[in-house]
């Protein structure tokens, strides 16, 4: 609500590298779903960010 960077995508975690590319956010490639869950959880708790699922193998994190 306060700053303009709040609604940016701050990180992307994916098992499907073809589904995502470019952009300003770092992309974390996970070998499988379990690893994707783990990376996303860690990033979420460290960055106080919400994990959203695009349902194509890609998660992304953003602040709300």
């Amino acid at each position: 609500m306060q700053g303009e960077i709040l609604h940016n995508i701050i990180a992307i975690v994916t098992t499907n590298p073809k589904s995502v590319g470019g952009g300003g956010a770092p992309i974390f490639y996970a070998a499988n779903e379990a690893e994707r869950e783990k990376i996303a959880l860690y990033l979420s708790r460290i960055l106080n960010a919400m994990v959203h699922d695009l349902e194509n193998g890609t998660y992304f994190l953003t602040h709300h």
């Binding site: 869950e37 996303a40 959880l41 979420s44 919400m50 994990v51 959203h52 699922d53 695009l54 349902e55 998660y59």
Partner: peptide
Amino acid sequence: ALLFVDDILIMNVGL
């Protein structure tokens, strides 16, 4: 990934 209460969309949850 979408959380609903009845037919009302609340949010998208990943984990």
